[in-house]
């Protein structure tokens, strides 16, 4: 029981971290909390379902196209909706909140109320260390999720674009003085944030089929993750995700299954009381 709760906590935690990464990136660079993050996640799930299931593409090609499409959609949203809100974090919050409701209802209209699931990559389950059975698709999703996270951090550390992102999220004015076109950077990083949501979506849709409103609890967890780790801190976001996953599963195993989602909010409030800037946040303000 304990072994499973911990393993599952880490796997689910990695999933939370992956979903939260996009939120964290956009918060760090643009100071915008994208309330519709969960809906981008769902959109990618739908895209990969349509490309793979309805149009008969190879599942992996379908996933790739889906993430690209969500990236483009994200750029479009940034251009049309988010751009006039720079500097007013609450205005962007209100706009993305309305956007999330609009998208949920648009999905309901277009894709219908039933869950949609792209094909599995693998099937069956594996007996882990003789302790418990674990679904193969979940293990594959875990591997893919870790790969995306590693790639993302490598890009952040090693590429010129990554350096630009880090510079801007540390000091926007300084970055502008150094000749970074922040307008274009904003557009790209918002798209990238959405693409990260999309990556999480295509990786997870075979495990958790998508429905029009399934993005809401996921986005909520992502926000908690970001606050827990410290606004805009990518490292904090990963640690936050793992903590949430563990707390939730240990709580469900030993305390109460009905209250499993409350545990993470309690942790959040405790952290805010003790260390308001989050685990890895810069303590300003």
């Amino acid at each position: 029981m304990l072994a499973l709760a911990i393993t599952n906590g880490l796997v689910i935690g990695m999933i939370y971290a992956l979903t939260a990464l996009g939120v964290s990136l956009v918060v760090g660079i643009m100071n915008v909390v994208n309330f519709a993050h969960g809906e981008f996640y769902i959109l990618a799930g739908y895209f990969s379902y349509i490309f793979a299931h309805t149009m008969g593409f190879d599942p992996f090609a379908a996933m790739f196209i889906a993430v690209c499409a969500v990236f483009l959609f994200g750029v479009l949203v940034e251009y049309t909706i988010i751009r006039p809100t720079y500097g007013d974090e609450l205005y962007s919050l209100i706009l993305t909140f309305i956007l999330s409701i609009v998208l949920q209802n648009a999905y309901l209209l277009i894709f219908g109320p039933y869950p949609n699931k792209p094909p599995n990559w693998v099937s069956g389950a594996t007996n882990v260390f003789g302790l418990f059975y674990y679904g193969n698709q979940r293990l594959a999703a875990l591997a893919a999720g870790v790969a995306v996270i590693v790639l993302f951090f490598a890009m952040l550390k090693m590429t010129w674009f990554g350096r630009m992102i880090r510079a801007t999220s540390q000091d926007r004015e300084m970055a502008e003085l150094n000749g970074i076109n922040t307008k274009r950077l904003n557009m790209l990083s918002f798209g990238l944030g959405c693409a990260l949501a999309g990556a999480a979506g295509v990786i997870l849709a075979p495990v958790f089929p998508v429905t029009p409103t399934a993005g809401v609890p996921l986005a909520l967890t992502a926000f908690v993750c970001v606050v827990l780790g410290g606004m805009g801190s990518m490292r904090g976001c990963i640690v936050g995700g793992l903590i949430l996953g563990l707390v939730e599963n240990l709580g469900a195993a030993y305390v109460s299954t009905g209250y499993k989602h409350v545990f993470m909010f309690i942790i959040l409030i405790l952290v805010l009381l003790v260390r308001p800037s989050g685990l890895f946040g810069r303590s300003e303000a």
């Binding site: 909520l220 989602h261 409350v262 909010f265 959040l268 805010l272 308001p276 800037s277 303000a285």
Partner: peptide
Amino acid sequence: MGGIYLSLTTLAFSSI
């Protein structure tokens, strides 16, 4: 903590 923290904490409060 201001701004976004308030928004997210109230969201968490409403979920609880």
